[in-house]
């Protein structure tokens, strides 16, 4: 059988600007999924709080600690902790949790994009079905949702101006293109059919 070779894809752009709007690839972070086992939630929360200075909160807000560490709830009994690359966060949390939680590195699974500038909320609102009005979607607010057809975690960095998208690495280019199309006044997905 003939060998099938996939065409080489260009390296993903790391920044585009349209008027006052900028879409940029954010630096890599270490991302860790922490899922406390039954009966160990308090102990795991305590461990994470001591290690990173953040609570495993049931709110819709991301908790931020010192040293660039943060944590948000990523679903039922699941939290994403994140911190600077090279901080050995996964190994540290796995050791500290000592079998009381499932600790899984997710660094390779996600890419982060930041949409910035005046009108950023309006562009983000073209893609997600979540109400982004600052009265409800304030700084640190997290939404697990869809941007078009792409699952994302949307985090408000500053109402109206800065929105972070956490997206599966294999879908990052598609999301980048969709946001770029929206920034140019187009309708994402309309040209793919």
């Amino acid at each position: 059988m003939a060998e099938v070779l996939l065409p080489a894809l260009p390296v993903m752009q790391d920044r585009v600007t349209v008027g006052a709007l900028t879409l940029a690839l954010l630096p890599e972070q270490e991302i860790v999924s922490v899922r406390p086992f039954k009966g160990h939630f308090e102990a795991v929360t305590d461990t994470v709080r001591k290690a990173l200075g953040v609570m495993l909160s049931d709110s819709f807000q991301e908790e931020t600690g010192s040293g660039g560490y943060a944590a948000f709830r990523a679903g039922h009994n699941q939290w994403f902790c994140r911190g600077p690359e090279g901080g050995n966060l996964t190994a540290r949390l796995a050791t500290l949790c000592d079998g009381r939680a499932s600790v899984t590195n997710q660094t390779d699974s996600r890419v982060r994009l930041l949409l910035s500038g005046g009108g950023a909320a309006a562009i983000a609102a073209k893609l997600v079905p979540v109400d982004l009005h600052p009265s409800g979607f304030e700084t640190g607010r997290v939404a697990l949702t869809l941007a078009g057809h792409i699952p994302v975690v949307l985090i408000c960095r500053e109402p109206r101006l800065h929105y972070e998208f956490m997206v599966f690495r294999s879908l990052a280019q598609s999301l980048f293109d969709d946001i770029h199309i929206a920034m140019n006044g187009g309708i994402p997905n309309s040209e793919r059919v």
């Binding site: 679903g75 079905p129 939404a143 697990l144």
Partner: peptide, 11 residues
């Protein structure tokens, strides 16, 4: 309980 109020189209 995990996401807050969301539209029917998400469910």
């Amino acid at each position: 309980p995990h996401c807050g109020p969301r539209g029917l189209e998400e469910f």
